[in-house]
Each structure stands twice: as C-alpha cells, then as structure tokens.
Design a protein around this nucleic acid. Structure first.
Length: 271
DNA sequence: ATGGTCGGCAACCGA
C-alpha cells in the first residue's frame, strides 16, 4: 500500500469548500495540507470536512490573511506551530504520527508552510514585503539545519518560489519578477541544502519538463496562455526520499468552477 | 508596454 500526501493553496477555505470536497472524493489522499485558508480557527469548516472522511483536522488560522490547515484520515500524535520573524502570521503547522496512525505513518512529521509572497518589487531596501520574504527564508534555513537528521519528515506547501528555469513559463522574462529572482532561488536552495531536503516532485518529473502549480487569475485564458509557475512543493528528508513512487500536479482542478489560482500537488510514498 | 483578476471585508491590502 502507498500513502498519498497532497498540498494545495486554496485561497479561502470557506469559498472553496465544494472544490476541496470534490478533490478529496476523487483523489482520496491520506493527508491534505491547505494554505491561505483566510479564516480564524473558529470559522474553519471542520464538520463538512470530517463528513468527507477526514476526521483529524489541525488548523492554524487567522482573520482574513494566510492560515494553514492539515486534514488527515489517520490520527495525529502531536500538533505544533512555529512563528517566524517575530510575527504572529499563521504560516506553519506541523503534525506528527504515532503507531495509532498505522505502522506506515508512525514516526512521520509533516510540516505545512506558507512562505510570504514578497510583494512586487524584488528589492529588500525598497520593499519591506520582499525583505520579510528573505528573512523568513533565512529563519527556515536555520530551522532546517537544526532539524536535519531528525528522522522521517516531509516539508510541503506554497513556498512562493519557482526555483528551476522549467518551473516558469519564461525564465528570461521572470528573472526580475518576485518568485523567480536569483536571490530568492539562492535562498530557497539554501533552505533545501540546510535540511538535506529532497524535491520529490522533481525527482519524479524530470527537470527538463516544464511544470507549474499556479496560473494567475489575470490571464484571459489561463490554460491557453499557460503562463504558470511552480510555487508549491513537496520535499522529503533523505530517509523518505527513496520511498516516493509518484508525484503529480492536479492541473484539472485549476479549471474547475470558481477555482483557486493554485493546483494541488500530490506525492505517493511506499512507507 | 501595460494592465489584467481574485478574496476578505468593508476601504483598500495582499496575492
């Protein structure tokens, strides 16, 4: 048997509830990590998602902005949130699994991240949001270094950076666009190296193939213009990396009625 | 070259 782990920036969990339920029913992932839920914990639609088969739900929400949640068919042993840059932003949620979740999931820790988007101007002097993004990545790097070698772990979420040339529709045209600037890519690569994280999606889908997880709402026809970016990621600790048997971007979900601007990403592991 | 669209929440901010 395999375990399917999914991540999806949902851009309002309340507005997108029908799309989430559709995805869960069609794909039946064991775990779904959501970002940009955009609601406080008390407004999260727990009952509807439990009814869809996900009895175990951890939420780190806040009013109007950001917010992450993790839904699971199997029970959590522990739930933890981290703060970054001395802010109260809800951008991280960790869950871990014990033997009561099954022998395959036991010992796994799953980190769900929503990295700051960084605003429009790729200059930390001129744009405090870009400075915050770089600071956040620096803290992620230090945290990754500390937890390195600390057993079976996954790091998933909207990292808001497309690192490879084939992760964007035009490398040349996006070099000065926030999400694909060299300084962001260097910082993301430093986070990855510090934790010895393996990009399991690119291990399964070769880097010479273009792959996107986000398409702007502003395009007249998102599919026809296909000006996408790969902002959403699934990384594994070294011990788990060899266990990944498949990875996929569920692009069709971007074409459903009233979609999120992000598509879900799914990795399947044989644990 | 520029502006284009969403969501939250009640005027714009953030993406």
């Amino acid at each position: 048997m395999t375990v399917a782990i999914a991540t999806w920036n949902i851009n309002s969990v309340r507005l997108r509830l029908p799309q989430i339920v559709r995805f869960l029913k069609e794909r039946r992932p064991d775990i779904l990590c959501l970002q940009e839920i955009k609601c406080p914990n008390e407004h999260f639609p727990i009952a509807a998602l439990r009814e869809a088969g996900y009895a175990h739900i951890a939420v780190n929400g806040q009013k109007a902005y950001h917010g992450v949640a993790t839904l699971s068919r199997r029970p959590f042993a522990e739930v933890e949130t981290l703060s970054f840059c001395g802010k109260q932003d809800a951008r991280h949620l960790a869950v871990s699994f014990g033997v009561e979740a099954g022998a395959d999931l036991a010992g796994l820790t799953l980190h769900n991240f929503y990295v700051p988007a960084g605003g429009d101007i790729p200059d930390p002097q001129a744009n405090v949001k870009f400075a915050h993004k770089l600071d956040f990545l620096a803290e992620m790097r230090a945290w990754s270094r500390r937890r390195r070698g600390d057993g079976a772990a996954l790091l998933v979420g909207d990292l808001n950076i497309a690192p490879l040339e084939t992760d964007v529709w035009s490398h040349r045209q996006l070099l000065r666009v926030v999400s694909h600037t060299p300084v962001e890519v260097e910082n993301l690569n430093a986070v990855q190296a510090a934790g010895a994280w393996v990009d399991v999606v690119r291990a399964e889908i070769p880097p010479d193939q273009r792959l996107y997880t986000w398409w702007s709402y502003r395009a007249r026809d998102w599919a026809a213009s296909d000006r996408g970016r790969r902002l959403d990621h699934i990384w594994a600790s070294p011990a788990l990396a060899g266990r990944v048997v498949a990875a996929e971007v569920v692009k069709e979900a971007r074409g459903w009625p009233r979609p999120s601007d992000h598509a879900p990403v799914v990795a399947r592991l044989k644990l």
